[in-house]
């Protein structure tokens, strides 16, 4: 099949960018979206032009590197699917596709469709860890965890940190990402130790990185390729309120975090 693409091209972080038109010819419906772009890039290279720069790594929907907004939807129109797992059979002959990078102040464009997502890394570094004793591996089932809690923690831990939630959010907020991390650790006994401090420093780090505030629009949940639910944001909010009642929470939040 043949498609028309409008792709965001931007030479560098401080260069102005714009949408440019390309034709994707003879695309097989079995190809993934990224393979389709590979084909377009081969043509561009053959024609002596600069190929479209885009992020990718695993191409199997687990690393969270691929980051493209296709026709206004992060990761494209297919629900719970990353761009690398999106197949061309979901498109049809003659489709017009607008392909843009994640947009948020905290995600500056590096080149074309590649944005700098290290702000997410710094949010994790601020509080997305647990303190454990070094030494031998603890015995399995040494700490009993109710099945329901383990399941909920697993659901939250599915977040691959791709940033689609931020790209979708009208406020450029990283609330779903942060909530998934906070909820994941807060559900488990090992994560309870720093729970009060974690929710405070991670939301603070988010604010300092220039992400917006959650407006409860739930665009994030709809865009998430892993189906992370906004109920985790409610959980984050509960953790935050609980932290206010704890002295540790309050004392630690006013200390600068290293990051």
């Amino acid at each position: 099949m043949n498609l028309t693409l409008y792709v965001w091209r931007q030479k560098g972080p401080d260069e102005p960018g714009r949408l440019e038109q390309y034709e994707a010819k003879d695309i097989s419906p079995e190809m993934s979206f990224l393979e389709m772009l590979d084909v377009v890039n081969e043509d561009l290279i053959k024609g002596g032009k600069e190929p479209i720069a885009f992020d990718h790594d695993c191409r199997e929907g687990i690393c969270g590197m691929c980051s493209q907004v296709i026709n206004g939807i992060p990761h494209g129109p297919q629900e719970k699917t990353t761009v690398c797992q999106l197949h061309m059979r979901h498109f049809k002959e003659g489709d017009i596709l607008y392909i843009e990078p994640w947009r948020a102040r905290a995600f500056p464009v590096i080149k074309d469709l590649i944005v700098d997502r290290s702000a997410l890394e710094r949010i994790i570094r601020s509080g997305g860890y647990i303190s454990v004793h070094t030494g031998g591996v603890p015995d399995a089932n040494a700490i009993l965890i109710p099945k329901a809690d383990a399941e909920t923690a697993m659901d939250a831990s599915e977040c691959i940190g791709c940033g689609a939630c931020i790209a979708a959010c009208p406020n450029g907020s990283a609330m779903l990402f942060t909530a998934a991390k906070v909820a994941h650790l807060a559900m488990l006994p090992q994560g309870r130790v720093e729970a009060a401090q974690r929710v405070c420093v991670m939301t603070e780090a988010m604010l300092k990185e220039g992400f917006g505030n959650c407006g409860n629009h739930y665009e994030c949940q709809a865009a998430c390729p892993k189906g992370i639910k906004v109920q985790f944001i409610a959980k984050l909010n509960r953790e935050f309120m609980k932290a206010q009642t704890k002295d540790t929470g309050r004392r630690l939040v006013s200390e600068p975090f290293s990051g």
């Binding site: 409008y6 607008y98 665009e219």
Partner: peptide
């Protein structure tokens, strides 16, 4: 929030 989202998409569809 407006500052956090300085650039809008050429095409944007609201999901929810």
């Amino acid at each position: 929030n407006q500052k956090a989202k300085p650039q809008v998409y050429a095409v944007k569809s609201s999901l929810s």
